[in-house]
Design a protein around this nucleic acid. Structure first.
Lengths: 228, 228
DNA sequence: GTCTATAGAATGATAGAC
DNA sequence: GTCTATCATTCTATAGAC
């Protein structure tokens, strides 16, 4: 990494690349790889089309950069799984992080979904290495929780798929959710409710006690301090 | 509608339309609307491209027919929700039907996912009418189950989203699932296991007793040691 | 580093012979 | 009802002036 050419890439280049990548993520999400045109991406980034090809030689190279960025975001969230060895804490943190990503970066999730839908022409190698390893190791953790009696017997992989599917649904299918919500996106309170519902069903579903016990017995007058 | 031209559409037409629609569903699923070309669809249907345009005037008309077919398949599965007013029976039937669809018609599910991902340019009206009505009425049923104490308090809509997301994941993301399964699709036993896992987590997650327990009255010594 | 003009390829749709 | 030949359009990518 050279100090000038790579790290401080003339500031102009840096800014333009950022704008292009942001625009590209949106357009690829909305229209798929084939449906997206470099012309539309350039327009949304506020530069002429020829400049886009100056920074990113081909449409595919640009797409690859977008997908790689998304995979890194996913990896960051995946790490929250390891915050604790307690099933309730670990799964609460993981589901919460994945839900937050779906709300903050729905476009990235959609690009990822599109990529998988079309048989992962670009990121198949990630699936076979990083994702496969991550899944195997975390499935092992879940299996151990089962043998330790911390959760009910459950197939670890199908549990993970359920968490992925449900959390990413709030990004990938947000248009359907918005429509069923009267045409407007879920507000913060609704989204928190959705998050709680997902966490609650998963934890109860595998026989792990939820963190913020809604106290079926003597409830304190004070709103229970939810230990995140 | 004339008895000959419409109902018995010359058998040749019928056969060709069937072949085209089948090929179109596959290609649209694999490559999206823009990525799919009429040339590829015609090739896979075994006819010249010009013939495709003879049967379906435009690419969009063909796409619309494919999406409408998929929506009807979904509606059939949706009806299983009403097979019983018991939460365990109704949800078991519904989830089971949706999982079966994901296994039998993954292409249709993918076309649907693509359509929603791209903001439903073709089937927005279905979302706002049929789907919205169906969701509202079934959410009301679930709400009633809650007030009757049949299931734990849960937000009905977010529960439905969870079921949709999880069941459709086995179609839409089947490429990822296959990859994580060592590169081969889930076999029948694995798929049954996945189905059981999903049903088990959802039912336990909302505090409904799984159907496996045949003896409710004579309390067993162990509290529901459900075999995975 | 920027941008106009355009080359080159792919694709949706049609004309018109059979 | 079928199919070859072809048009018109759209899009990626580049050349070359500034």
């Amino acid at each position: 990494m050279r100090a000038r050419d790579k790290t401080q890439k003339s500031a102009v280049r840096e800014e333009n690349e950022r704008a292009i990548l942001k625009a590209a993520e949106e357009v690829f999400a909305e229209r798929g790889f084939r449906g997206a045109t470099t012309g539309v991406i350039a327009d949304r980034a506020g530069i002429p089309k020829a400049n886009l090809h100056y920074y990113f030689p081909t449409k595919e190279a640009l797409y690859r950069r977008v997908v790689e960025h998304i995979f890194n975001v996913w990896l960051d969230a995946a790490n929250t799984f390891d915050e604790s060895d307690d099933p309730v804490e670990a799964l609460t943190a993981y589901i919460s992080a994945k839900m937050d990503i779906s709300r903050a970066h729905p476009m990235g999730s959609k690009v990822w979904a599109n990529e998988i839908l079309h048989k992962a022409p670009v990121i198949q190698d990630y699936l076979e290495t990083t994702l496969r390893d991550w899944t195997a190791s975390r499935a092992a953790v879940i299996d151990r929780w089962v043998t330790e009696g911390k959760i009910a017997p459950v197939n670890a992989r199908y549990l993970l798929y359920m968490i992925w599917a449900t959390t990413q649904h709030y990004a990938d299918f947000n248009h359907q959710i918005d429509t069923l919500n009267g045409g407007t996106p879920l507000d913060d309170a609704q989204f928190e409710d959705a998050k709680k519902t997902v966490i609650g069903i998963v934890l109860a579903g595998i026989g792990a006690k939820p963190p913020a016990a809604p106290s079926p017995a003597p409830a304190p007058a004070e709103p229970a301090r939810a230990e995140a």
